[in-house]
Nucleic acid binder design. Sequence first.
RNA 1: GCCGGGGUGGGGUAGUUGGUCAUCCUAGAGGAUUGUGGAUCCUCCGACCCGGGUUCGAAUCUCGGCCCCGGCCCCA
Length: 410
Amino acid sequence: MLQKPRGTRDFLPDEMEARRAVEWRLREVARRWGYREVCTPEFEDLELFTMRSGEGIIEEMYVFEDKGGRKLALRPEITAAVIRMYINEAKVAPKPLRWCYFADCFRYERPQKGRYRQFWQFGVELIGADTAAADAETIMLASDMLNATGVTYELKVGHLSFMKNLVKDLEPAMQRRVRVHLDKKDFDGLNATLESLNRADLAASLTALVETRDLAEAFEIAGTISEKERVEQTVASLDASDVKYSLNFGIARGLDYYTGIVFEGFAQNLGAENQILGGGAYRLAHLFGGDDVASCGFAVGFDRVMVSLGETTAKKDTVVGLVSMPEGRKRALEVGRAFRDAGIRTEMNLMERGLGAQLAHASKSADFAVVIGKQEAEAGEVTLKNLHSGEQKTISLDAALAEVRAHGAR
RNA sequence: GCCGGGGUGGGGUAGUUGGUCAUCCUAGAGGAUUGUGGAUCCUCCGACCCGGGUUCGAAUCUCGGCCCCGGCCCCA
């Protein structure tokens, strides 16, 4: 038998309904903050992603050549494409731009809990606002979104300027190495690296910076930072809002183009792959031939959110099973039309079955059975049976519609 | 790419010192029941991940592959 590709999943209706329900909650939050949806191609020039993230990521991507010999890749994330799109289509749009997306991405990695080769991200990008208010808005939106999904999570907020200031005298490659150590809390590795550079003097401050959860203390440790005022304003905004977060100056994110604020969200009940949100302020546009516009954005790891939520029972549609006898078939089509026009999910019998067998089937899939036989067709009425209580009555079509609607409203 | 645990009908399972027709539950189709479901009974449908090897004989032993689960690496 043919199997689906490794790391991909099939979703049956129950699961799709649960996923769509969460998706729409995220959409609704984005909408309320003024973020409008965009869509970019499923695949792009390979170069778009290597420019952003380096040649190393080729190993982790689905890369292919098309019939014209073009090097392409299935998108491993969406931010680069959105910024490319901004440069191509919307450079002169009034700033700030508030965009969001919900889309699948592909990475060639070893699957494990919460990690798949095809996965979905819900992300937002705020383009062209280089202010503390913009940084704060993005984090407040992130918080709102995670709250809307219902996951239990922890939100960590940091700022790269602190760490960057401490290591500014090191050469860029070493700065990066130190950052990786700190992001992983690998203090042994950090000390070894610093000693090899004869900069063991930095160890104490860097370690203290990663450990502190206090802004004033972080300023003391890191020394004079040009962005001090902006950081203070951002933090003040967050504290004035209802965002629950903790400061963490060890957050380094993976890439070099993050410029200031950075933040990450973690679900509490996941395994090794428990990060469900990541983002920050960055400058990417100039890489793709645009202006050096400042942006801030994040993405929610949708699949991990769903894993974290577990087996949640999505609210079920009220379902009507339309049971009909040969003499009532024609009338049943009219009745079905009326129920559907009223917005009610209505499933007509398609099998060559007797009344008993039709009801038996309806009892497994529906809340109500509407029976249309010879008697109902002649009387112009319907028999409505509540399949939970067993209660049954023969009434007018309008009365039946009203009763089913009332059930759905509960 | 690395480490560990797995893979038996659609779902869940029993069965391996190698040996009847591979067990049971559930789901599905039909019937007992031609205008009333959920109970009961009957019938039907349907599986040893793939390939090589050992053997008279492999679901069982062995090798390789694929896939799943957890972890490492990575995590844009």
